[in-house]
Nucleic acid binder design. Structure first.
Lengths: 198, 198
DNA sequence: CTCTCTTTTAGTATCTGGTACTAAAAGCGG
DNA sequence: CCGCTTTTAGTACCAGATACTAAAAGAGAG
């Protein structure tokens, strides 16, 4: 970008930051062959915020957009947690979870809430589901808020049985029994041991 | 969230930052009633980057475009379909499907591939999973391409049993038995039944 | 050429939200 | 009580800024 005067530079700056909001003042100054101070003045004049604000704004929009929370470690929102004992999470059924025809949630979303909770409740650095038996007691519909409760029934050194019940209000919606294992040689993760809790 | 010890706090921290990556250490410390230093140590232990990096990552993803196919009717890509007989789909394990720590896929994604295939193979306008028994035979890792095959074992007027096996190359990875039901009064929808095949 | 006005550059102090490191204090388990 | 883990405190430093002051460089008018 050969830029000859302030007007041209400011126009170019605006376009540049629109297509690439991640540039710092220093990087921009380099591209335009001017000092950092000049770029700052230009941003002031144009009312363009600093790079962190710009990035933040982009991120904000994404979270507001297609709400794919379904990617994280835990499906739903953690409400309560007592490691190796029980845990509760809440999951709200939205458009993207249901069959459009019936507005009934696809089973694997209920499974996902229960499964991720069963794994999270186990007090171990790494825990994996080995098997599960599940029943979809009644359909769950768009808009319902499902509360899942996981209870650790047995815990041995390398595996545990976790039962999960999911309700919507008073109704029982889902129930499952999960066998969760801790792979051999992965019993401790970070620092020291941690046979903690109660 | 009442949190009593380190493990619980770290589990809760992970869940919290997934649903809200914008929190600073100071804000988090406030929520958990511990010092900022403690939160820093927790983040280090869990390999969670600082707030700016987290925000940056979220923004990055947005610019890359939301490609989550995980929202549609079928998880994975349909390869083969003979209604009421069998179906095959392929699912590639990506970043968003694995535990970052171990790069092992979370169980509910394998379940989702199998479940959505089991439902899709049934020749009915509406089909729902009623129950399932599943086994995660061996962990599936980032980058693997999982091929699931669903076979309809029995079909009665209002329900069917569907078995699903998932392989990665030669390895058996997952197997499940699904009971799929067609709600009463919803037996015929579009045109005729479908003895079509390939 | 000089005076004036605009534009650019330089430099300092301060802020946020950290990293990296050291060290002390608090808890707890035997 | 000792020894180990866990938590807290504190320091130095960093990036990428804001806010402000001031000097230098250009450009045009007379």
């Amino acid at each position: 970008m050969a830029v000859r005067n302030r007007r041209e530079r400011q126009t170019a700056l605006q376009a540049l930051l629109e297509s690439n909001p991640f540039l710092t003042d220093e990087e921009i100054a380099g591209r335009f062959g001017v000092s950092v101070q000049t770029i700052r003045l230009d941003r002031m004049a144009l009312g363009i915020p600093e790079v962190r604000e710009r990035i933040r704004a982009v991120a904000q929009k994404r979270l507001e957009g297609p709400r794919s929370l379904d990617t994280g470690e835990l499906i739903g929102e953690l409400i309560e947690l007592e490691l190796d004992r029980m845990a509760i999470s809440m999951f709200e059924i939205r458009e993207e979870h249901v069959f459009s025809r019936t507005r009934i949630a696809r089973g694997h979303h209920l499974f996902a809430q229960a499964n991720s909770l069963a794994v999270a409740v186990i007090d171990a650095p790494v825990a994996l589901t080995a098997s599960a038996e599940v029943r979809f007691v009644r359909p769950a519909y768009l808009g319902e808020r499902l509360v899942a409760k996981a209870v650790v029934k047995q815990k041995k050194r390398d595996h545990a049985q976790v039962d999960v019940w999911t309700r919507s209000g008073e109704d029982r919606v889902f129930e499952g029994r999960f066998l969760v294992v801790q792979p051999r040689g992965e019993r401790e993760g970070v620092a020291g041991s941690g046979e903690d809790s109660h």
